[in-house]
Amino acid sequence: MTLQRCLFQASKQYSSRHILKANIRQSFCELRYKYSSNPDKKFSDRHEWVLVEKDIGTVGISKYAQESLGDVVFAQLPDPGMTLKAGDECGALESVKAASEIYSPVSGTVTEKNKEVEKKPGLINSSCYDKGWLFKLKLSKPEQLHDLMNEEQYETFLKTDVEKDHT
């Protein structure tokens, strides 16, 4: 649903005038720089990212999510061996002001959790795309990756759907 909506919006934008296109492209570039991450990462509409190498996916939260949450002081992560379906609640991050559940963006079996993050949850704020990863899982349905957003789509989603959803 979400993806379709944002593709529709993207296509609308591309059919607009050149000058608008240029502006959008420029802002995408700025955003990509600002939220700098690997273009191969896939994002969920709940602000998790997953980066897949072979059949192992590494999961974390986006810069936007990290900023909304504030200083993370406690991370509850899924234990290795846990079997997860895409969308399953599998942990939580706590800041002074709020608790946020972690949802797995894809189905699979947890192979590892980031013990450094359990010890130093602040890594999620200082390095959400690198040292602040949360857990790894062996994907059972790799085709689910197609349901997720690439970075450009996610940035569009942030600029449109998130704003609308929270109005």
């Binding site: 986006s62 002001k97 709020a98 946020s100 559940e101 949802y103 704003e163 929270h166 109005t167």
Partner: peptide
């Protein structure tokens, strides 16, 4: 990632907030 305790408006952007106001 679902922010559960936080008022939903926290996530609102300034632009939309202004429009809403």
């Amino acid at each position: 990632m679902g922010v559960i305790n936080i008022p939903r408006r926290v996530l609102i952007s300034k632009k939309v907030l202004l429009a809403a106001i």
